[in-house]
């Protein structure tokens, strides 16, 4: 092991880099005992040590590039996935983001102690500068892990939002010339836009003269939702189809009256069945129940 006491005049960052490369094995061994590594790599300690080594290597590479404060440094690229996996494993175990951050912070003291023991005999200034560089580097590592965890969560949310848009807007053909849209969940601008587009497309495609918007699955109707409904109805009317709103529950009807919401001259019905009955009547179609002997009453 080279004698570092002579290099008191060296700049602190290469000093830390050399230290990380020299003490790679010891640091990884100590990290393997920390809760973060121990709880992620439960099967074998060797695995934890290997993971620790690759993180130390990444840190050394970042220090080599003199970019200790940059979470986007190229050196982190190699371990980003591994760090994300570790962060995700801890989150799955029920730890909050703050607790994961604390566990990451616990990785710093063992390294710092090692560095201090290596720097015995060096000048106080040099020691302080080196420790500062190490602290900054460990701080950046924390930022990298947090960043990765957040972007993972964000991409999950984006994916689910898209899925929700796809799932929630089926247009159902009820009869020749009658289509229905069962709306489920809160209607925001993006979703009502999708609903409107799919409904209008279906109206053209099926030459449907009547469309039923069923809002049984909409938890609450405020002025914004009412406005979206009115817009959809108006657009359908412009294309030559009549739109009926059904599934207004008593509680919602009450809220709408309290809020002073007016659906204008939109035809409304309490249930989808009522709306279908109304439309069939408009079309001059009747449904008759056969008599006991299977005869259709005239």
């Amino acid at each position: 092991m080279p004698e570092q006491a002579q290099k008191t005049s060296g700049s602190p960052t290469p000093e830390v880099r050399d230290f990380l490369r020299r003490r790679r094995e010891q640091i990884a061994q100590r990290w393997a005992d920390e809760p973060l590594f121990r709880s992620v790599f439960t099967v074998s300690r060797d695995e934890a040590v290997e993971a620790g080594k690759s993180v130390v290597d990444a840190l050394a590479q970042v220090a080599d590039a003199e970019r200790v404060e940059d979470p986007d440094a190229a050196g982190f690229a190699a371990v980003r996935e591994q760090l994300a996996r570790m962060g995700a494993a801890r989150s799955r175990a029920g730890l909050s983001t703050g607790q994961v951050s604390t566990e990451l912070a616990a990785l710093r003291p063992p390294v710092e102690n090692l560095l201090l023991s290596d720097l015995q005999g060096a000048s106080a200034d040099h020691t302080r500068a080196s420790v500062t560089v190490l602290n900054v580097l460990m701080g950046t590592l924390r930022v990298v892990v947090m960043q990765t965890a957040l972007s993972e969560g964000q991409s999950l949310i984006d994916r689910q939002r898209l899925q929700l848009l796809e799932v929630a807007t089926p247009v159902i053909k009820l009869w020749d010339g009658i289509v229905a849209v069962p709306l489920i969940g809160t209607l925001d601008s993006a979703r009502s836009q999708v609903v409107m587009e799919t409904l209008l497309e279906t109206i053209v495609e099926q030459q449907a003269r009547h469309a039923i918007l069923d809002i049984t699955g909409v938890p609450a109707v405020d002025s914004l939702v009412a406005q979206h409904l009115m817009k959809t109805v108006a657009a359908a009317r412009l294309m030559g189809a009549e739109c009926i709103v059904s599934g207004i529950r008593p509680a919602i009807a009450q809220t709408m009256v309290h809020l002073g919401l007016d659906l204008g001259n939109v035809v409304t019905r309490a249930s989808l069945a009522d709306a279908l009955g109304y439309v069939l009547h408009q079309l001059g179609v009747g449904i008759v129940t056969p008599g006991p002997n299977g005869a259709v009453p005239r």
């Binding site: 587009e197 209008l200 817009k231 657009a235 294309m239």
Partner: peptide
Amino acid sequence: MRPAVAITLV
């Protein structure tokens, strides 16, 4: 009327 036109008008 096309759907896109109807939406624009509304």
